[in-house]
Amino acid sequence: MHARPSTTPRHPLGACAAALAGLLLAACASVDVNDADLFVRHQQPMEAGWLAQAQARAAESGAGLEQVQFRSADGTLLGGLFLRQPGARLTAVYFQGAGNIVQRSYPALLRDASQLPLNALFWDYRGMGLSEGVGGTPQLMADAQAAVREARRLSGEALPLAYWGFSLGTLVSAHLARELPPDALLLEGALTTAQAWAENQVPWYAKPFVSIRLADTVRGYDNHQALRELRRPTLMLVGSLDPASPPAFTHSLAQAMQHRDSCLRVVEVPEVAHGGALRKPEGLAAARAWLERGAARQGC
């Protein structure tokens, strides 16, 4: 669920880790993680001219970038950026890691997306960045469906549609894929369950002293169930050095997929931590092959 390296989310689990480092184990013996803890609005003001800088960066590769707004089913206004690249073979809806907002993460997002022939919608979860409202998992699926509708409107119905999830975004995109299957699914640094992720963040020396209590709405996200029967070309990328979403998570999900032999490819990218798999030749080659399969709507 962690953000890409440029952003670190703040929530009780992080506070607990800091307390543990200060040997305050008794004060952090039980950690409650609620919906609101995963979707915390950044209070720091954004740098003036960030959009112009993002557009200039996109233009370096001949792409267009526009700020967009769209409404979820309950009328809440959501926002993001839409990248339109020449020669795009499909359109991807990107699902971010926890704590990320497009105003801060756009350099990494554009760098990764520019290596693939696709259009992409990068959007902020409700209550964060360019999106209004109060964040929480109960609204995630409705908001994600609204993002899909907006991506289709912007890119047209002719291009195939893919979901591209990172960290926390793999939970969102995989559960959306079960309800509204895309033409292809890309998961980076995949999570198995919210509970497993939370427990993995606790240092080994503190595990006997610390328990994690997730809100029921958060605990209900389980990618084993979401991916079990999926029949869409799926690529899972994971860094061999990923401490937040270790390779064991990805391999566990792979074993749970009933159609893994025909639908799934797993690539463990060496010398990569949490994020950055597409900046290595192994990850990029796998993503390009996945994209071509999705663009052809070959299915599996």
Rank of each mutant, 00 (worst) to 15 (best):
Pro5Met: 02
Pro5Lys: 01
His11Gln: 10
Ala15Leu: 12
Ala19Gly: 15
Ala19Leu: 12
Ala21Phe: 10
Ala21Gln: 12
Leu23Lys: 09
Ala27Ile: 00
Ala29Gly: 14
Val33Gln: 07
Asn34Val: 05
Asp35Phe: 01
Ala36Phe: 01
Gln43Glu: 15
Trp50Gly: 07
Leu51Ala: 08
Ala52Cys: 00
Ala52Asn: 08
Ala59Val: 03
Ala63Tyr: 02
Gln69Tyr: 12
Phe70Glu: 10
Leu77Lys: 11
Gly79Thr: 10
Phe82His: 15
Pro86Trp: 00
Gly87Ser: 10
Arg89Tyr: 00
Leu90Pro: 05
Ala92Phe: 05
Ala98Val: 14
Asn100Ser: 12
Val102Gln: 06
Ser105Thr: 15
Tyr106Ala: 05
Tyr106Ile: 06
Tyr106Met: 04
Ala108Ser: 14
Ala108Val: 12
Ser114Lys: 08
Leu118Glu: 06
Leu118Val: 13
Ala120Phe: 01
Phe122Asp: 10
Gly129Ile: 08
Gly135Pro: 09
Ala144Ser: 15
Ala146Cys: 05
Arg149Ile: 01
Glu150His: 14
Arg153Trp: 09
Gly156Gln: 05
Ala158Leu: 09
Pro160Gln: 11
Ala162Phe: 04
Gly169Met: 08
Thr170Tyr: 07
Leu171Ser: 14
Ser173Tyr: 07
Ala177Arg: 07
Ala177Phe: 05
Glu179Pro: 00
Glu179Gly: 00
Leu180Gln: 14
Leu185Cys: 08
Ala194Cys: 12
Ala196Met: 13
Ala198Gly: 14
Asn200Gly: 13
Gln201Ile: 08
Pro203Asn: 10
Ile212Gly: 02
Ala215Arg: 04
Asp222Asn: 15
His224Trp: 02
Gln225Asp: 14
Leu230Met: 05
Thr234Gly: 04
Leu235Phe: 04
Val238Leu: 06
Val238Asp: 06
Gly239Lys: 08
Pro243Arg: 04
Ala244Glu: 13
Pro246Met: 06
Ala254Asp: 07
Ala254Lys: 03
Ala256Lys: 02
Met257Gly: 08
Gln258Tyr: 01
Ser262Asn: 11
Arg265Met: 05
Val267Ile: 14
Val269Ser: 06
Glu271Lys: 12
Glu271Trp: 02
Glu271His: 12
His274Ala: 11
Gly275Val: 10
Gly276Met: 07
Ala277His: 10
Leu278Glu: 09
Lys280Glu: 15
Glu282Trp: 01
Leu284Lys: 11
Ala286Ser: 11
Ala286Phe: 06
Ala287Thr: 11
Gly294Gln: 09
Gly294Glu: 06
Ala295Glu: 10
Ala296Val: 02
Arg297Ala: 11
Cys300Val: 11
